[in-house]
Amino acid sequence: MNQFQYVRVTTPKAAVAAVTKENNSLFLAGGTNLIDLMKRNVMSPEKLVDINKLPLNTIEKTATGLRIGALAKNTAVAEHELVRKSFPLLSMALNAGASPQLRNMATVGGNMMQRTRCGYFYDTAMPCNKREPGSGCGAIGGYNRMHAIFGTESSDRSSKCIAVHPSDMCIALVALDATVLVSGSKGERRIPFIDFHRLPGDAPEKDNTLQKGELIMAVDLPNNPFADHSHYLKVRDRASYAFALVSVGAALNLKGNTIQEARLAMGGVSHKPWRLTEVEQFLRGKPATEATFRQAADVAMKGAKGYGENDFKLTMAPNTLIDALKTAAKNA
């Protein structure tokens, strides 16, 4: 670990100012990922701006839905009555992630900001375009069992990255049309969740679209008609405390057996939480049958590409999608 300065701020304004003006400074919230990365010398910020004292941990009903403060702990969100009742997909996704100890520390904003768990990103003795642009991608031709099958295109091979975003929570948030409220030196702005994270393209070192110094303030969720038919299905190597091989967040609005509307996203398959809007459109107006879901899976898998060890995801992803949809259709 490098030597660094540590400051604690009490207002969002001071936080933004502190990070904006210094080149290599970062916000510190729960620290469940950043501290690990610092210990392994993957990230070496010169200054940590501790934002835990900011008043950003409330979860409250709004005129259009729910607002979750960026510093709300994962556990608090997962267990919140409104979340469990009206946004069960989010609660399920949160509880599928990490361990209780980590969820007690991790914040909503921090969860969104967590870096990939790709082994090459973590080992400074091996190449990684995300950690060290231009050094190459260790996972291509190497251990890529956990890696992406969607959105890995890049124009320049030397900047390629096939890492995945590890969050479960973000799969639910992207499916449920969340919006991210951020604050920067130029004021506040709102980012649709689907645009918050980015594909690697030619700049895999950038995980998201935040500008320098911008602070996540809250996540807004619009009210939705999906509470009765939501399911988060995570396939992993052990029963708890493991990252997804593939996960699916599925939410349906059924009238009788007809799908009025669907929301779908996949985890463990891409550099960003993978929203399946085309599949959602396909499902609209169709009967909620296994046959429909199988066709939906075909739509979902268009453009998927394996890298050897992760080829199994080309089977696991559609299977998991079908299974999640079947369960969501049954739930009530």
């Binding site: 768990r117 082994g119 080992d123 052990r238 029963a239 493991a242 990252f243």
Partner: peptide
């Protein structure tokens, strides 16, 4: 490539 307890999976209680 998986020299940590998150990626080297010892069984958990579940």
């Amino acid at each position: 490539v998986n020299n940590n307890l998150a990626d080297y999976h010892v069984p958990v209680s579940a």
